[in-house]
Simulated scan of single mutants.
Amino acid sequence: MSDDLPPAQIHHAPLAGVIGMPITHSRSPRLHGYWLDRYGLAGHYVPIPVMPEHLAEVLRNMPRMGFVGANVTIPHKEAVLTLADTVTDRAALIGAANTLIFRPDGKIHADNTDGYGFIANLRQNAPDWQPDRGPAAVIGAGGAARAVVASLLDSGVRELRITNRTRLRAEQIKAEFGARLVVYDWAQVGNMLDGAATVVNATSLGMQGKQPLRVPMDALSPDALVTDLVYTPLMTPFLTEAQARGCRIVDGLGMLLHQAAPGFERWFGHRPEVDDDTRRIALE
C-alpha cells in the first residue's frame, strides 16, 4: 500500500550516529537512545566505525541514507572541518568539530559543542562558580583543552594559565587565543596552581589504562573549583586529592552529557534534560 503513496507522504524517522575509529567504547548510542525513548521520539542513533581514508565518502553518502547529523570523535574531529560546507566560528577557533548537521540539500554544517558542555557541567554542579573570581589553570593543550580555553575566556576568565608536556603546543594556543594566556613549563605545574580559582585537567592522564596525573598540589587553594575531563573513573586521583584539600570538585561525565544535548535537539527536535537519570544511563 505504501508503494502507492506519492514521495511527499513517505516519512522516514531521522537517523543520527557517532563517527570514529574505534567506536565501540562510545557512550553516545546509549545516551541518545535513552533520550529518544524517554521523549517518545521517532529516530535512531547508531555507532559508525569509519577509517580515516573512508571519511569523505561516508560523509557524502550519509545525507542520502536519511542521516540528519552525527557526532564526531577520535580521530576525525579535525578532518571533518576540511570536509564541511560551513563551519561555526567556535569550531574554527578550536580547530575541531564534534557535531555535524546535514542540511536537506546535503550540505554539511560543522560545530563544536565541547566548550558549551564544559561550562554547562560547571554551572550545573557548581552553581556559584564565578569565572572572573581568579585565574584559571588548564593542564593539557590538545583538542579538548582548546575547547576548554575558548569557553573559559568566553565566560569571562581574565587570566588563563596553561601547561603541556610539549610546551610548543601550549605556546601555539597562546598565539591563537591571545594575551590573557600565560604559558608555564610542565615542571612548573605546581606553581601554576598557586592562586588559581578554577583548575582543569584537560589531558587523558588519570584515565583507566593511562598513566596517573602527577601534579604537586601543595599550592592549591581550598577555595578553588577543580574539574577533570576524564570520567573513567569518575573520581580520578586528581579529583580525590583536590577534594581532600577542601576544594569543590566536578567530574567529567557532565561535560559528555551536556555537549550531546545541542546536537540531539537539532536532529530530533527536542532539547533533552541532563539529570540524575541521564547520568545513571550513561554509566551503565
Rank of each mutant, 00 (worst) to 15 (best):
D114A: 10
A137W: 06
L100H: 05
N112M: 04
A120V: 00
L122H: 02
W129M: 13
I108G: 04
R123H: 14
D105S: 07
P135E: 09
P135S: 13
L100P: 05
F118I: 05
N121M: 13
N112R: 08
G134Y: 12
G106R: 08
G117M: 10
R133M: 10
G117Y: 08
N125W: 02
G106W: 09
G117K: 05
W129C: 15
K107M: 15
P135V: 06
R103T: 14
H109I: 00
H109G: 01
A126Q: 08
D105Y: 01
Q130N: 15
N121Q: 07
L122P: 05
D114F: 11
P131D: 07
Q130L: 12
P127H: 08
D132L: 04
R133H: 14
P104L: 07
D128S: 14
K107H: 15
L100Y: 10
N125I: 02
F118H: 07
F102C: 10
Y116S: 04
I139H: 03
I101P: 00
A110M: 04
P131G: 13
D128T: 14
Y116M: 11
G134V: 11
D111P: 00
D132Y: 04
G117F: 11
P127C: 03
H109Q: 12
F118V: 11
A110V: 04
Y116A: 10
G117T: 07
A126M: 08
N112T: 05
G106S: 12
D128P: 00
D132T: 10
T113K: 10
T113Y: 10
V138M: 05
D114S: 10
R103P: 03
R123I: 13
A120E: 12
W129R: 09
L100S: 11
R123Q: 15
L100I: 06
A137V: 04
Q130V: 09
Y116V: 11
G140Y: 04
Q130H: 14
G140K: 01
A137H: 03
Q130K: 15
W129D: 02
A120C: 00
N121A: 15
G106I: 12
V138Y: 06
I108V: 13
A137E: 10
G134S: 12
P104G: 06
I101G: 01
D128C: 03
F118M: 12
K107L: 14
A110W: 02
D114K: 06
D111F: 00
G115L: 05
G140W: 02
P131A: 15
A120Q: 12
D132M: 06
L122D: 06
A136S: 09
P127G: 10
F118R: 07
A136W: 02
A136V: 02
R133D: 13
N121T: 08
R133F: 03
W129F: 14
F118E: 06
F102M: 12
I119E: 11
G140F: 01
K107P: 00
G106K: 09
R123N: 13
A137Y: 04
R133P: 03
P104F: 00
G115N: 05
N121F: 00
A110R: 00
